[in-house]
Design a protein around this nucleic acid. Structure first.
Lengths: 194, 194
DNA sequence: ATTATCTATAGATCTATAGATAATGC
DNA sequence: ATTATCTATAGATCTATAGATAATGC
């Protein structure tokens, strides 16, 4: 097999990023093996460096991509109709904390420990910070346009941290207690003032 | 240098666990290199396997040790006198979310992603679950004996998740916003009923 | 002619083991 | 005699690079 068309090469690049994103969400940065990911895309490791300058560069790009995907999903889930939960923020919380395949977690949780400045490349740390900032902005935007929610900025930061912490704890322990408590309280708290 | 005394060997074993605990808190399971840790203790890697059956076994033991240390610290901090915060639960929250050296984080956060059942050894997953359970028990015990705190069990689980999430987010992003919001709200909420 | 991908490999890890060494403990 | 530790190394990674190959794009 020889060279791909420019168009195909661009698609291959995106597939590599998608696979890296999936691996990151499953096992953090430690789960990124260039040979593995290239094999999953159907290529060999040698081709990797025509697309990315280093493993670190791929991780940072996958982080950007993962957060981008989360922003989209959050917006969709908040907007979606739901019988059980009336407010859009409540719907987002319910989606975020409902049992999902454990192998594909939120990038905030999957990358949290790896993204700290003393461990991550500068690129990854920047991508993570920007990603969290963007997701929180999405969160507050949804809250502001939700008439059933009247939380202050500080209370929103609190709720956001609780959501993320509960996700991490329930995922790691397999005990839904954390996710359930946060979901119930936040859904109630964004509806009782309607 | 030849053989150590039985007493010295036991001390060496504990020093290996302490170094592993420090490495775990700094960089998660990925930061555990047997040669590194043994060198830090002043030994060579060959001696490792007289003390531990495998790298995974050391990680699990370090996890147990780390949680044990946290339980002790939490109890001390809650009991300590403080001018600024009156309730013992508030003191614990303040300690847990105050700026600490980023290199020595809470085991719940440092090991969270590594401890999930599809990634960790069974030993590590069990140690993590037990550790979280014990820390939450410590948390609720402190809350129950604190007359300024009247949170329900569900609200305590919520507060606990918020604390952990804020710790992870502030540590990873370097932005104290999450820690500050959770600290202020929880300290206020455990005092306004006094 | 250019270049995306492949094959092959250098160099640097890291875990675990085997056998040697020397101090302990009886 | 026993055993905690050391030296040395096998075997298995993994990242990154060099040079070959073959299809694209002009």
């Amino acid at each position: 097999m020889g060279r791909s068309s420019r168009e195909q090469a661009d698609k291959n690049r995106l597939r590599v990023i998608d696979e890296a994103d999936a691996a990151l969400r499953s096992g953090g940065a430690a789960a990124i093996s260039i040979a593995d990911i290239m094999a999953r895309v159907g290529m060999t490791q040698g081709g990797f460096y025509k697309h990315f300058s280093s493993r670190e560069a791929l991780i940072a790009e996958a982080c950007v991509s993962g957060f981008g995907r989360s922003v989209e999903t959050w917006t969709e889930k908040a907007a979606a109709a739901s019988r059980s939960v009336r407010g859009s923020l409540g719907r987002l919380v319910q989606y975020y904390l409902s049992k999902k395949p454990i192998e594909r977690s939120c990038p905030m949780v999957a990358l949290g420990p790896d993204a700290a400045p003393h461990l991550a490349s500068r690129e990854l740390n920047v991508a993570y910070r920007l990603g969290v900032e963007t997701l929180f902005k999405t969160f507050t935007n949804i809250a502001e346009t939700d008439p059933s929610c009247s939380l202050s900025q500080k209370e929103l930061a609190f709720a956001f941290a609780a959501m993320v912490g509960a996700n991490m704890l329930s995922r790691a322990t397999g005990d839904a207690r954390w996710a359930d408590a946060v979901e119930e309280i936040l859904v109630e708290r964004t509806e009782h003032s309607r």
